[in-house]
């Protein structure tokens, strides 16, 4: 019986369970949807959350990482932001702008160091996670001056890095990486099919993910959206593909919902990194829902449209 390995992060998980009570429930969300306007919505959010402080994922991250600072599994959740920040730094360098306002937090990177190193083109001293990608993306960007290609290259690199790093992680993180990768590849293939991108672009932009054959996905995308949907209908992502056919927004919601479904199962554990990762994912989804809600209210969307767009919450 491996007592210490089985029971890691007992304190962090218990703290997170105490904090789960402050996450918005489905009935809270229904009340928020029926708020008549933006100011009423904000007042209701403040009363539900019991705080006037702005909600921030950075706070959630710093809390989780203060309890489990050595938990490498959780860092994979930040790859998305880390690689976004790399894109921001590279584009700012090319455009001659300051990158700070384009950065997303939380991130595992030291952002001031990132800004300095990228501005000096000192790729060697960058964090291991992004070092090679930064150098290759910079070379690609300066050679082709195609920002979209460089973006897609960095996105694909982040997915590949996530898949590789998740090999040694808990089951939730492994599955999270696989689903994130597959959904990102499907979205990329769909957009490329719409924009009639060529094979060399697709080969750079599609990361390759478990459950999807990269070559077949590229071929299907090159043949157009119908061929893409036809190929996807034989994969485990058939349901998502049928939603993508009707609306990309519905596919986005579906891909967020399947990840929340994973988190919902993982939160039941009492030890290990899974419940911590699940709490971070749930907090991220809650913030996404509040943003959707705010934007929809601002543009006067009706309640049923808002409800349709809201992501799944903890069950």
């Amino acid at each position: 019986m491996s007592f210490t390995n089985d029971t890691r992060y007992a304190d962090a998980v218990a703290a997170v369970k105490a904090l789960e009570g402050s996450l918005l429930t489905r009935s809270d969300m229904e009340q928020l949807v029926s708020a008549p306007g933006g100011s009423e919505l904000n007042a209701l959010i403040r009363s539900k959350k019991g705080t006037d402080a702005p909600l921030s994922l950075e706070n959630v991250w710093s809390l989780i990482s203060s309890y489990a600072p050595e938990c490498n599994d959780l860092k994979i959740l930040l790859y998305k932001n880390d690689f976004h920040n790399l894109k921001a730094a590279l584009k700012a360098l090319i455009a001659g702008k300051e990158p700070e306002k384009y950065y997303i937090r939380p991130t595992s990177l030291d952002l001031s160091e990132l800004s300095v190193l990228i501005s000096h083109k000192d790729f060697e001293d960058l964090d291991d996670t992004i070092r090679n990608t930064a150098e290759e993306a910079y070379e690609l960007l300066t050679r082709t001056l195609d920002g979209q290609l460089a973006d897609s290259f960095i996105d694909a690199a982040s997915i590949r890095k996530m898949i590789t790093a998740s090999d040694e992680c808990c089951s939730l993180i492994k599955r999270y990486a696989q689903l994130t990768a597959a959904c990102a590849d499907i979205k990329t293939a769909y957009r490329c099919a719409l924009m009639k991108k060529n094979r060399s672009f697709l080969e750079l932009a599609i990361a390759g993910s478990p459950g999807l054959d990269k070559e077949e996905l590229i071929t299907a995308s090159l043949s157009g959206t119908e061929s893409l949907f036809e190929y996807l209908s034989y994969t485990e992502y058939e349901e998502g593909a049928s939603l993508l056919k009707t609306s990309p927004a519905k596919f986005e919601k579906w891909s967020d919902d399947i990840i929340m479904e994973l988190a919902d199962e993982a939160r039941l554990g009492s030890f290990g990194p899974e419940p911590l990762a699940a709490y971070y994912i749930a907090s991220e989804t809650e913030l996404k829902n509040l943003r959707i809600l705010g934007v929809c209210k601002e543009f006067g969307a009706d309640d049923s449209t808002i409800t349709e767009r809201l992501r799944r919450l903890y069950g």
Binding site: D11, A12, A14, A15, A18, L19
Partner: peptide, 9 residues
């Protein structure tokens, strides 16, 4: 350990 996590919150 678990109790400390809860009490800290």
């Amino acid at each position: 350990e678990a109790a400390s996590g809860v009490v800290s919150v």
